[in-house]
């Protein structure tokens, strides 16, 4: 039942934005205002920003649901306009917030849309649909013949994901796909997405306004504001060194507990340097968030924690000092005094 890897992952695409501008008629400000950056093949890049920041517009420029006013988007070095838009789109998965399933198609027919457009033969489509439903955690025998209206929101979104993956696209575009789901379902689907990404390594552009979601999923985060890219960095850098007050606000840098819930233990610990490990110290997994570590530290009253990896092998230590460091942002342009007072309040 496993989809063969060759069938699923075409070589992941590189996406390069070059001075991309999108101006909507009748609006004074450009929706996307001179955006340039490069998405490495196989990385999961989150476009993060408040509503109206241009992140969805930027996404739709990639599959040409919008055409740029000026500038170029290169996909594997080739301008996106080099081929007709429908053909470009068939090679990019597209997932949107309300799932956008076709209500008159059964689940299997929904998933089969792109393979049919590509004229796959019936048997191949059928096999592929079953593989994909398995992949997104919907048993094909149960779900194949249902209609979208008979599914929960989370199930619909799983079908939406399966449909986007159907023709093994090298690129996946996701526009707030989990935005309308409850917290538990959302977190489950985030895990599924990470698993699928780890397995097939597509290039993924993911739009969200939720910083927690961004930090959880992203290899890199693009922070957008008023059509411009404000910062393009790893999640850790975005949280630890926001480029300006806007990013600091967005990540809630001044809220100590919030910051601690965004930074992982692995990023803030002091790695073990061959020294002898204190047997007594309480442990914390390296994938946990700093907020959890702080809780463990306070609860136990121990001077420091032992950080362990997935196999419970010790990899580092964490004391109050390190947690304090992780709780103080280094906002560019903010005075030392403010940082100091923040550190004070953190204590």
């Amino acid at each position: 039942m496993e989809a063969s890897r060759a069938d699923v992952a075409n070589a992941a695409a590189t996406i390069e934005f070059q001075a991309v501008v999108k101006h909507f008629g009748g609006e004074s400000r450009a929706g996307v205002d001179g955006v340039s950056f490069t998405v490495d093949p196989g990385s999961l890049v989150v476009l993060l920003g408040p509503s109206g920041s241009g992140k969805t517009t930027l996404l739709k420029l990639v599959n040409r649901l919008y055409e740029p006013t000026s500038g170029v988007i290169l996909i594997n070095g080739e301008p996106s306009t080099a081929q007709p838009a429908p053909e470009l789109r068939r090679r990019m998965g597209y997932v949107i917030q309300q799932a956008g399933l076709f209500p008159h198609y059964r689940v299997a027919e929904n998933v089969a849309v792109v393979p049919k457009l590509l004229h796959w033969d019936k048997r191949r489509i059928r096999r592929r649909v079953d593989d994909l439903l398995d992949l997104v955690g919907l048993p094909p025998e149960t779900y194949r013949d249902r209609y979208p209206a008979q599914l929960s929101g989370g199930e619909q979104q799983r079908v939406g994901l399966a449909r986007a993956l159907a023709a093994a696209p090298a690129t996946l575009l996701m526009d707030e796909p989990f935005g309308a789901l409850d917290a538990i379902t959302r977190s489950r689907l985030q895990d599924e997405l990470l698993r699928i990404h780890a397995r097939f390594g597509q290039t993924i552009l993911f739009v969200t306004h939720d910083i927690e979601e961004a930090v959880r999923l992203a290899d890199q985060i693009v922070v957008m504001c008023e059509g411009k890219v404000v910062q393009y960095d790893s999640p850790l850098k975005i949280v630890m060194t926001p480029a300006n007050e806007f990013v600091a606000d967005l990540v809630g840098a001044d809220d100590v507990l919030r910051r601690l819930s965004l930074v992982s233990v692995a990023a803030a610990m002091q790695p073990l340097a061959g020294e002898v490990v204190l047997a007594e110290a309480p442990t914390v997994p390296h994938s946990a968030r700093m907020r959890t570590a702080l809780g463990t530290l306070l609860e136990s009253g121990a001077p420091r924690l032992l950080v362990v990896d997935d196999d419970a092998a010790p990899v580092g230590t964490l004391d109050l000092r390190a947690i304090q460091d992780a709780s103080v942002p280094h906002v560019a342009g903010r005075s030392e005094q403010v940082a100091a007072s923040l550190a004070e309040s953190a204590r």
Binding site: L65, P86, Y94, I96, G100, F102, H104, V114, L117
Partner: peptide, 24 residues
């Protein structure tokens, strides 16, 4: 939303009309 996802998946204008808009 159905029409946009039809376009986003790579249907041309004729396919969007005959496969999604008209049946609905």
């Amino acid at each position: 939303v159905a029409l946009e996802s039809a376009r986003g998946l790579g249907m041309n204008a004729f396919q969007v009309f005959t496969r999604v808009q008209l049946p609905l």
